[in-house]
Design a protein around this nucleic acid. Structure first.
Lengths: 349, 349
DNA sequence: CTGAAAGCGCTAACAA
DNA sequence: TTGTTAGCGCTTTCAG
C-alpha cells in the first residue's frame, strides 16, 4: 500500500547527493536537530551545532533548496528576462545589456538570491512570467520594455511581481526603473549645440519608449537654442547597426548637410563613426558624435566617444531593491535615475 | 498535534498563486486527475484533459516546478557559472563571454532547461558547485577554466556533473569543450608569415591553458617557417586591455622592431590597434594584427579585424549536450571544436 | 535541549 | 477512467 519506487537498488536516478537524514544518521541525532543546527537555531546546544556544521561542511552537504522552499513556501531566486527582438536583432549581445546582467548578478548575489536568466521573444512577452507561474522565481526583472507595454501591464495586473528596466510611460501599472532619458537627450544635444553644431542628426528608434524620451530631450534642446527641427535629420534605426549604417549613408549621399550625430546607443554611435569614416567625414572635425550608455568600449574608441552614461552599477541594486519590495507587497513607484554626460574627443570641435 | 501555521488569514506570505488543488476544486475532479491531465496522460479522458487544460491556461496556472521536481527527484535547471577574476578584471563584460552566455541560453531553452547564472570569484571556484549541492541545478557549466584546474578536478571527483568551456589539458578528470587553440594559434601566425611578416608579437596570458595552447600553435608556425622565436616579442597580458596597452607601448618605446601582432582575444586586439595608432604605426601597413574570437565588433573595427573565429553558436549546443550526457551518467570525453581563420583588412599588407 | 510527526505541492501506485 | 493515499527532503510545532 505504499510506493517504494526504488525496488532495484541499481535503478536510482541521481542518488549520491546526501540529504539531511544521512548526516543525521552519521551524527547520531535526529533530522530535526540537524535542521536546527544548520539553520543556526539557538535551541540546539552550541556543541552539537558546531559538530553538525563541521560534519556537513566536510561532506559538502548543503540543504536542498527546493525542499526547503517548498516547506517554507517561498524561494530565493528571481527571474531576469531579456526580451529578444527578432526584428531589432538585439540579443544578449549588446554590451550594455550584458553589463546590466552583470550588475544584476552582483546585486542579487549580494542579497543572497539566485538569478534565473531567460530570453523571450519580445512578441510573446507573456512568457516572461513563466518562471513566476511555475513558482521557480519569486519575481521577474525585465530588461527593457520595448514595444510590450500592454503585455507588461497585463502581467502586472495578474499579480506577477515585476520590475522593468526602462522608461516611465503614461498609464503604466508596473514599476519601472530607468535612466532619465529626457535629460540624457537634452544634455547630449545641448552639449553639441554648445560646441557649435547646428544641424544635428538624431538616430534611434523612437517607437521604443526610451528612444522616444531621448528624442524629446533632443528636440527640447533644439527649441531652447532656437534651432529649427528638421525632420530630415531624424533617422529611424532600431538598435541594429545595419539599419543605422544604411540610413546614415543615404543621408550623406542625399547631400543633406549636418555637423553632428546624436545616437541612441554607443553601439549605434560606433556604427555611425565607421560610416562617417567610410564617407571621408572626420570625427569630430567634420561631424561631432555623441552616443548613449557609456559602455566600456566608448572610452577606448577612436576617437574616444562622448556619451551619456547610464548608472548601470547603481541600477542593478535599485532594480533588485524595487523587486524585493514589490514582492513584499509594497507598491513601488517607478524610479528615474540621473544620467551624466561624459565628454570625450568625439564631440570636441 | 499538527501545525496549521496559517492561523491568521491575513498573515500568509505569498498566497494568490493557485495550486493544483484549486483548479481541481473548480473543475470538480481530484488533484490526481488534474495532474494526469496537465501531464498529458492517456489515462484521463480526452474530454476532461481538454477541459482541465483550458481551465488551467485561462487561470494562468502552471505546475509548481519545485514540488514537481521534489517528487520526481530531478530538475530541469542547469547552473552556468562565470568565473570572475579579480586580477584579470574579466567580468561578464567581455563580449565573447556574453555571446557564449547567449548561445548557452538558446541551447538550454531549446532543450527545455532553465539557466541559473552566477558569477564566482575564480579564486574560490569550489563555490561553483553550490547550485548543485543545494539541488538547485542538475549540473554545472563553467565558462573558462582559468587557473583553477585543480579545483575543477576536485569538484568533478566529488561527483558534480560538470562541463567547462576551455582547453583540454593533461590530467584533467572533467569534460571540457573548447576551440582548437593550437590550430588557432598556428593558423593566425602562419597567415601572418604568409603575408610577409617576420617579427610577430604574441600577446596574451600563457598561464591560462587556452592562451598557452595558442602560444604553442604560434611557436609551431614560427618553427615550421624556420623563423626564430624571440622571447622579447612575447608579451604577457591577461585579458585586461590596460596591461596590453602598457606592455605594447613599452615594447614600441624600447625600439624593438616588429611587423605583426597576434593577440589572444579580439578585445586585446582592439587595444593593440589603438595603441599602435597612438604611436603612429598604421595597421596593417606598418603592423599587421590578428585577433581571436571573432566577436561581432571585429568585422566593424577600423580596419576590420582578421581573427580566429570560435564556433560560439555551435559550442553552446555542444556544451549542453555534454552536460546532459554526463548527468545521465555517461563518461563524456573532452571535445575540441574546429576554429577558422577569418581574414579581413587588419592583416593584409 | 532533543525527537516524533505533520505537511509544503506535487506524482504514481493501487484500488475502485 | 478516476480517486485515495503515501511520500519526495525539508521545517516546525508539540511533547518529552
Amino acid at each position: 500500500m505504499t510506493l517504494p519506487p526504488d525496488p532495484a537498488p541499481a535503478e536510482r536516478p541521481e542518488r549520491q547527493r546526501l540529504q539531511m537524514a544521512d548526516i543525521a544518521r552519521i551524527a547520531g541525532v535526529s533530522v530535526a536537530t540537524v535542521s536546527r543546527a544548520l539553520n543556526g537555531s539557538q535551541e540546539v546546544s552550541a556543541a552539537t551545532r558546531q559538530r553538525i556544521s563541521e560534519l556537513a561542511r566536510s561532506l559538502n552537504y548543503t540543504i536542498n533548496a527546493g525542499a526547503k522552499n517548498l516547506r517554507l513556501r517561498h524561494n530565493k531566486t528571481v527571474a531576469v528576462v531579456i526580451p529578444f527582438d527578432q526584428q531589432a536583432r538585439l540579443h544578449v549581445s549588446d554590451p550594455f545589456f550584458l553589463s546590466m546582467l552583470g550588475s544584476l548578478a552582483d546585486a542579487l548575489t549580494d542579497q543572497g538570491y539566485d538569478m534565473l536568466v531567460s530570453r523571450v521573444d519580445a512578441d510573446q512577452l507573456e512568457n516572461a512570467a513563466r518562471a513566476w507561474d511555475t513558482g521557480a522565481a519569486l519575481g521577474v526583472i525585465l530588461i527593457g520594455q520595448w514595444h510590450s507595454h500592454a503585455q507588461i501591464n497585463a502581467m502586472s495586473d495578474r499579480g506577477v511581481p515585476l520590475v522593468v528596466w526602462g522608461a516611465q510611460v503614461p498609464l503604466q501599472r508596473y514599476c519601472s526603473v530607468g535612466g532619465d532619458n529626457v535629460a540624457g537627450g537634452l544634455m547630449a544635444t545641448r552639449h553639441l549645440i554648445e560646441r557649435g553644431c547646428r544641424r544635428i542628426v538624431f538616430i534611434g528608434d523612437p517607437t521604443t519608449p526610451e528612444a522616444a524620451q531621448r528624442l524629446r530631450g533632443h528636440q527640447q534642446a533644439l527649441l531652447d537654442a532656437g534651432l529649427p527641427h528638421d525632420p530630415a535629420l531624424q533617422l529611424h534605426s532600431s538598435f541594429d547597426t545595419g539599419q543605422a549604417r544604411v540610413a546614415l549613408s543615404r543621408l550623406i549621399e542625399s547631400g543633406t548637410v549636418f555637423d553632428a550625430v546624436f545616437a541612441c546607443s554607443d553601439v549605434l554611435a560606433m556604427a555611425v563613426m565607421q560610416t562617417l569614416r567610410l564617407h571621408d567625414r572626420e570625427v569630430p572635425r567634420d561631424v561631432a558624435v555623441v552616443g548613449y550608455d557609456d559602455i566600456e568600449w566608448a572610452s577606448h574608441a577612436d576617437p574616444p566617444l562622448t556619451t551619456v552614461r547610464q548608472p548601470v552599477a547603481h541600477a542593478g541594486a535599485e532594480i533588485v531593491h524595487a523587486l524585493l519590495d514589490s514582492v513584499a507587497g509594497e507598491i513601488v513607484p517607478p524610479r528615474t535615475l540621473a544620467v551624466e554626460l561624459v565628454v570625450r574627443r568625439s564631440s570636441l570641435r
